Simulated scan of single mutants.
Amino acid sequence: MNRFLLMASLVLLGGVAPFIPQVALAQTPTASPTLLEESVAQNSAQRINALLRRGRELVEANDCAGAIATYREAAALDPDNARIFSAIGFCYAREENFAEAVDAYQRAIALDDRNANFHYALGFSLANAGDYGAAATAYRRATELDTDNVEAFLGLGVVLTRQSDYDGALRAYQRVISLRPNNTQVYEFMGAVYIQQGRFQEAADILKRASDLAPRRGSIQVNLGVALLSLGNVNDGLLALKRAAELEPRNVQIHLQVGNILRSQGNVDRALEYYQQAIAADASSVQAHELMGELLLEQQDYLRAIVTYRRVVELAPDNPNGHYHLGLALQGRQRNQEAIAALETARNLYQQQGNSEGVDTVEAVLREL
């Protein structure tokens, strides 16, 4: 499939973020061998309870670092409490530190293997860490323990899609439909799978259903546009893409996706318009400037490409690709000394990254100059 159409059909990872765990408060023992031991146990339980309450307050205040430290202090006092480790995992996941989140959820599962929510949260963290195989295993375990867990089935479908197991993904999504027939997300995800399979009519049909359920969601309109264009329905496809951008005018990714699709259709002028809209939505988006610069270079519009790539290297001075393409644009205007300076910067950055292929590419251009 054309890489721009495929880009537009991708879906986000993992369904819904893990819940905030309700950590049970420690129970004060009702009996102890001696009064001294009973007093120690009571003090420990009171300390744990205070830490758990404080940890939840910090989570609600979005102070994840403070919450993690507090929960770890509670875990030291109560190392067999699985929900404390689940709470730690949630905080790490919220901070997008998925490696640490995985470790915490695995510790929770080691203490309580029958909790479906722990397995779901582990799957979510593994998926976002890029370990799709392990994520699928965790999501499947969550669905075995809770056969009505919609979020786990959605997450399973997403990671199976990433592994190109489209039939498995569709089975997971069909289960969601049986549980929640009006779940918009599942129809959108199924549409993306059908697009990747080249089943464009089925994609269009199910995405229209998604659009009926959520008429103001731009991402649905993007995928619907892809399906319709792939069926040769250019007018309706372009209308869907236009509607996507109108629905979410500040969504940079939607503008870029629409631009990429139009570019793949050979509609260069319209593609540039959407790249410009993406930049207008977020002037600091390196990706938006890079895509626009790439298209300008293809069209040999070197002057505008120079302006665009100067902005790229300003935003990302350590990105060798920006300096390399700036050099090409300057070369196109026969500003050779400036081109050499930009290309040498690109070569140095490629060398620092250990990218020998990038170094060879730059040196080939330098030899021409």
Rank of each mutant, 00 (worst) to 15 (best):
E95T: 10
T70M: 14
L77E: 12
I48K: 14
A65H: 03
L207P: 13
L213W: 08
N2M: 04
P79G: 07
A87H: 04
V11P: 00
L160G: 01
A329T: 10
A341K: 09
R270H: 08
Q106H: 12
Y274M: 00
A138P: 05
R107Y: 09
A203L: 06
A329I: 12
T143C: 10
A305V: 02
H289C: 00
A87E: 07
A74K: 05
A26W: 05
N49V: 14
E188F: 14
E273M: 11
E144G: 02
L52T: 05
E294R: 07
G327M: 14
Y324K: 03
Y187Q: 12
G55N: 06
V193H: 12
V193P: 11
A240V: 08
R3T: 09
E357H: 10
H119S: 12
V23E: 09
Y275A: 00
A280F: 14
I279L: 04
H323F: 11
A110I: 09
F189P: 00
L213E: 05
L156A: 04
Q201N: 12
A50P: 00
Y194S: 01
A104N: 07
A31G: 11
Q27T: 14
A280H: 14
A227W: 01
E73M: 07
D360P: 00
F200G: 12
G266Q: 09
I195M: 11
L156Q: 04
V313R: 04
S284R: 15
N251E: 15
V313L: 10
I206V: 15
L238M: 13
P79Q: 08
A116H: 06
A204M: 12
D318H: 03
L272D: 03
A281D: 01
Q334Y: 10
M292C: 08
I20M: 04
N62P: 07
A278H: 04
V252N: 08
S230L: 14
R54Y: 03
D318I: 00
A135E: 13
R140L: 15
L231M: 13
T70D: 14
V102G: 00
R310Q: 15
N183Q: 15
T361I: 08
D301H: 06
F200S: 14
L213P: 03
V222K: 01
V222S: 07
D205C: 09
E273A: 07
E73F: 01
L297G: 01
A8H: 07
R83D: 12
Y105M: 02
V23G: 11
E144S: 06
N260Y: 07
T161E: 10
E37F: 11
A45W: 00
L229Y: 09
D212P: 03
L272P: 01
H323D: 03
L262A: 01
I340T: 03
A82Y: 02
R333Y: 09
I109V: 08
L330D: 03
I177T: 06
G130T: 08
S230F: 09
S178E: 13
L224A: 06
N321A: 06
